[in-house]
Amino acid sequence: MGTITFLLVLSFLVFFHELGHFLAARYFGVKVHVFSIGFGKQLFAKEWKGTTWQFALIPLGGYVRMKGQDDTKPGIEEEGNDSYNTKKPWQRIVILFAGPFANFILAAVLYFFIAVLGASALAPQVGKVLENSPAQQAGILAKDEILKINNTEITTWNDIGKVIVNTQGPLKFYLKRDDKYFAKTINPYISDSQNMFKEKIKKRMIGISPSGKVINLDLSFGESLVFAYEKTIFASTMIFQGVQKLIQGIIPSSEIGGVITIGKVISDASESSIIALLSITALISVNLGVLNLLPIPALDGGHIMFNLYEMIFRRKPSDKVFMFLTIMGWVILASLMLLGIYNDINRIFLNE
């Protein structure tokens, strides 16, 4: 069942990515010969409005084949107003960007549904109070509920961290303890900490941790839209930073996961709850959008780079350079895929 869920989710994400390319191409009048979910041998095909819609044997991706675009024949010249290569560079960039953009939009829609169905978060309830910390010195105790800091209403535990980090000077905490309300003034201190990438950082802290209590968020329509926007931006930023840290060597290459890891995560999420499945699907959708924008030839970002070059220098890269960079791009992608699978297999054996 897990494998079926994985294939359905992946096909769903690929469909929306390619649909973005397809709709943008058709908007500019470009003929699309094939819309494929999967690669390799054709398993099922249906022609509709001049496009062959198909499922192929290897379901790990997809593509739209447009008139006038062929990576194996960069110098191809197909005349006519319905040809990709006769469009202006900015129009081609829009067509290329539309795929990743569709993934971002899909993620936002999924996060919106999560908000409507019942998003959850850690409650702003104190769990542990560190010895000799500003919180302990102010008299904060375990199970205290934080209602407000200065003039900011606190709804979730994440709100507390945002206020502490982004506010200077002492903070006035409004708390609830055993049905009694009171206020405490706390002076945060700068302490050693780690970010999500396990880098050592300096951070304003008061010395408390969450109790682990989870609450359901009762969000209005407008608040659900804001939730979806913020979650999509956060996920995108996190993945962009993750790629940057990987290139810098801060994140080890052993952390790269392949299709086996993705499949396991999707399978586990589907067995947990619909909210968990929607959350991981949204995160993978953002991942696809970000990774496809990387300036690697053979990816959308690489083709965008070629078109930017044409816009700046008023000429296309030579066929020889285009082919060389495209092949190098495929080598990089294949190497990353093999590394991911290698890491997946290592994790399986290490867990046994």
Rank of each mutant, 00 (worst) to 15 (best):
T5H: 00
V9I: 10
S11K: 12
F12Q: 04
F15P: 12
F16N: 06
H21E: 02
A24N: 08
V32A: 09
F35T: 07
W48Y: 09
L57R: 12
I58N: 06
Y63E: 09
K67W: 07
D71Q: 14
D71N: 14
D71S: 13
T72I: 03
K73G: 00
P74L: 03
K87N: 00
P89H: 07
L106C: 08
F112A: 07
F112C: 07
F112I: 01
P124L: 01
G127T: 05
A142Q: 13
L147A: 13
V163S: 08
Q168I: 02
K180P: 03
K184L: 09
Y189K: 15
S193N: 12
R204W: 07
I206T: 01
P210E: 08
V214R: 13
D218F: 12
D218E: 11
L219H: 14
F227A: 00
A228H: 11
T232I: 06
M238W: 00
Q241E: 13
I251D: 10
S267M: 03
S267D: 06
D268F: 10
S279T: 13
I280H: 08
A282L: 02
V286S: 08
V290T: 10
V290S: 03
L299Y: 14
G302A: 09
E310N: 04
M311F: 11
R314I: 02
R315K: 15
K320Q: 09
F322C: 01
T326D: 05
W330Q: 05
W330C: 13
L336H: 02
L339E: 03
G340P: 04
I348C: 00
